[in-house]
Simulated assay, not measured.
Amino acid sequence: MEVIAGTIASPKGFYADGIHCGLKKTKVDLGWIVSEVPANAAAVFTTNQVQAAPIQVTKEKMASGQLQGVIVNAGNANACTGAQGYTDAQQMAIAAADHLGVAADQMAVASTGIIGRPLPMEKVTAGIAQLQKTGDPQAFQKAILTTDLTEKQIVIQTQIGGKTVTMAGCAKGSGMIHPNMATMLAFVTTDAAIATDLLQQLLRELTEVTFNQITVDGDTSTNDMVLVLANGLAGQPEIQKDTADYHAFKEMFQAVLTALAKEIAQDGEGATKLIEAKTTGAVSDEAARMISKTIVGSPLVKTALFGKDPNWGRILCAVGYSGQPIDPNALSISLAGILVFEAGKPVFFDEECMQEKLEGSAIEILVAMAQGTGQGMAWGCDLTYDYVKINALYHT
């Protein structure tokens, strides 16, 4: 398995483009991903009960299990916009499909941006007409960003069934991040041949240990979506469950989703540090994941690490209210690689060394439970002054 340079259009038979259509002042704000042939499709969506029109439309289009592309805009979420919003999302799909010469039920829709504003459809439809099948794939990555400071993408290749299989992923997400799911859009393309049902099963399984293990601010958005397209053009035999090819594909898939999840956490609004929490020895993997996610979601932990304060008591407190079985007298905590708590008692440490460690841009927290074999990880970021500034002024 090798990480290579590339874009969301690197797998065989995929294209992408992005343009500025006027939803944002100057930045690229409209794009699409297109497959040469209908692709087997899988998706997971926000669990927020208030769901934006593009989510509703794309759920309907997923019924066939195949898609040929997705049209995406940033700058306007088309959420909480009533019947007109639903009609506008449908019209986006129709306009993109007509421009490509494919069926409208083969075109998914995604939007991100401000909630509660109708889409200016004259700008959207005019922009769709400018998109090119063989346009600029990197521009698509730019077209999905809102408050993001960085583009998030990865391309991986591996050998499956005697053929080179490529998988690419890109994502946006910076604030309102607390999956299941978060204000994030993620798109994955692959030229592997895999049945829709198996692809959907794998996506759900891997989402639990990747995207659903990140948190920035505890808010779950109305528009979140992870969409995967597999067009089979690599030419390898179709992947069958529990085979060597299946495990190779799963490893690649998990690597792509993990990389994107960590990039989203690291690019949290105003963030200066990626926080990675790992719990081992829990009563189950699920318990370990929930403990880890509670730690990275704690405002007190997040602010302490922003201030470079080794306040491990806040970590222990978060473990205690995680809702999972714990024995505080049998666990240990390490912060930035330094043991700070063990067997119910503090461990004295070199404060200068700790201060130097906390200057880093990535901080690891390890909780060892000694209660079982469960293990799990979660990712978050620090909570800074800039987070408040960005969200206080988001609408203005």
Rank of each mutant, 00 (worst) to 15 (best):
169 G>F: 13
76 N>D: 02
203 L>N: 07
363 I>S: 04
275 I>M: 05
369 M>H: 13
138 Q>H: 11
314 R>S: 14
362 A>Q: 15
253 F>I: 06
341 F>K: 10
103 A>P: 00
177 I>W: 06
316 L>S: 11
53 A>G: 06
64 S>Y: 01
327 D>L: 09
190 T>D: 04
110 A>N: 00
254 Q>S: 14
213 Q>E: 14
170 C>S: 08
88 D>R: 02
13 G>S: 12
177 I>M: 08
206 L>E: 13
49 Q>P: 05
385 Y>E: 14
140 F>W: 11
368 A>V: 14
177 I>Q: 07
53 A>T: 04
300 L>N: 11
294 T>L: 00
297 G>T: 14
207 T>I: 00
297 G>H: 12
246 Y>S: 02
272 T>G: 08
99 H>K: 15
45 F>M: 11
197 D>L: 02
329 N>C: 10
318 A>F: 10
319 V>H: 02
221 S>L: 03
24 K>N: 07
233 L>D: 01
82 G>E: 13
110 A>I: 00
82 G>P: 08
332 S>V: 11
387 Y>L: 05
260 L>I: 13
191 D>Q: 01
381 C>H: 02
301 V>F: 10
291 I>S: 10
364 E>L: 05
247 H>T: 10
282 A>L: 09
283 V>E: 06
253 F>Q: 04
296 V>Y: 02
55 I>S: 01
11 P>H: 10
237 P>G: 03
84 Q>S: 04
36 E>I: 00
